[in-house]
Structure formats: structure tokens, C-alpha cells
Simulated scan of single mutants.
Amino acid sequence: MVAGCGARESEPASVTGDPALLQEHGFANADAHEIIDRLEALPVAERPQSLLASVTATSLQLRDDAGREAELPLPDDQFYLSAAPFVKTTHECAFHSLTACRGELRNREVTVSVVDSSSGETVQDGPHATHDNGFVGLWLPRGITAKLTITLEDLTGAAAISPQADDDLTCLTSLQLT
């Protein structure tokens, strides 16, 4: 099922699947960017247990316990990367689950730097807080190759990132702080 593009203001444009799923979870007028930011910011205990929300390189995919599904496209010029810096423990992940993924460093103040490898331009630089799930959510320009550096006190980790392809990973769990 495809919701109408722009005809009804109560549904986001380009929603495929069941728009009632969005309505029931309070996302009726939200786009993928807003839903991702809202879910990521929720304390773990308040995240909906009946909703599975995953981010791919191109869309936000939602599914509930009843098997209903909805999909919303990410902005064409942006890529969402959720990074879980760690010191001791991590897990493997490819596509970030906003409702299930957990990282080691919950609710910690970190410094995040993203520098475009081609131009040397700083894309992001400054303080961030890891969410209650241990992840830092980053909206990045699509198509860049960059160096991501995360610092926690005297510990630092870095990784090359390249949010370009439609199948690129959205969950970075290999960034160890040493």
C-alpha cells in the first residue's frame, strides 16, 4: 500500500505499507528523520516493545507485533549512521535497530569529529551525548568519505566511513576507544 504523496497532510509522503502503524505510535505527521530522532532519544525503558524500527541506508522500516509494516524513505541527501563507541564490549550489527540495539557506553558525554577525507572539511565537530542505548546518532551528507573520531575523556577511537551505497551499514559497532 502506498500512501498518497502530499494529498493528505496527516500522512507523510512516500510511506509504503500500513500508515495506521505510524498513527498508532504517534508518528502520523512525521517523516523518517523525525521518527529516527524521536526513537533514538527515548530512554530504553520507554521504547515501544511492540515495534521493531530499523534504519537501512535508504529507509526507515517499521514492523509491529501484528505483522503490520511501514517504510519511509530517508532524505536523498542525508545518511543516518548510529555509532556505538565501546571500551570493552560490543556486538556485530549491520542495520541499526532503534528499538533493540544496545551499546556499552550509555548516557555519556563524548566528542565527535567527522572530517571529509577528500576536502579536509569538518562536517561535524563537538560534544554529543550517547543515548540511553549507548549510541550516537549522526545525520551525515550522503556520498562523502570521511574519518569519524569519537573521544571519551582520554580515550579515542576512529573509523573510516563512506555513506554512499544503498546497502551501506547504518550501525557502527567496531569503534573501540583506547
Rank of each mutant, 00 (worst) to 15 (best):
P43G: 01
T89A: 14
P73F: 08
R68N: 14
E69D: 15
L98W: 01
V2N: 08
S117A: 15
V15E: 00
L98Q: 01
H25Q: 02
C171H: 04
D168E: 12
H96L: 05
R63C: 05
E34C: 02
L60S: 01
P163W: 12
D168G: 09
H33G: 08
T170H: 00
V15L: 05
A41K: 00
E153A: 15
R106T: 01
L72K: 13
L138E: 03
T89L: 12
N29A: 10
P73L: 02
D64A: 13
P43S: 03
K147Y: 11
L52A: 14
R102S: 10
V55N: 00
A57W: 07
P85C: 10
H91I: 14
Y80D: 01
T156G: 04
D125A: 14
T122C: 03
G17Q: 09
V115L: 04
A159I: 12
D116Y: 12
L152F: 02
Q61D: 04
I150G: 01
H91G: 14
T151I: 11
D154K: 13
A159C: 14
L172F: 04
K88E: 08
H96G: 01
I35Y: 00
S82W: 12
E34Q: 11
A159R: 13
R38H: 12
R63N: 13
F86N: 04
E11N: 10
A45V: 06
G137K: 02
R102C: 05
T56Y: 13
I35Q: 00
E104K: 10
G120A: 13
L81Y: 07
I150C: 07
P19T: 09
G67C: 11
T122R: 09
L172N: 03
R106S: 05
G126Y: 12
A84H: 07
S10A: 11
P48A: 10
T151P: 09
H131S: 13
N29Y: 04
A94K: 14
R68M: 12
Q23P: 01
V110K: 01
A41L: 06
Q176P: 02
L42C: 07
T89V: 13
Q61H: 14
G17P: 07
T170K: 05
L51D: 07
L169S: 05
S119F: 14
I36S: 00
T58W: 09
C101R: 00
L140W: 07
L81K: 06
M1Y: 05
L172Q: 02
C5R: 05
S59T: 12
S119G: 02
E71R: 14
A70W: 06
E121Q: 13
N107A: 08
L81F: 06
R47Q: 01
D65W: 12
R38P: 03
D132L: 04
I150Y: 01
N107T: 10
D154N: 15
P141W: 03
G4Q: 10
L169N: 04
L22S: 01
G4E: 11
E153M: 15
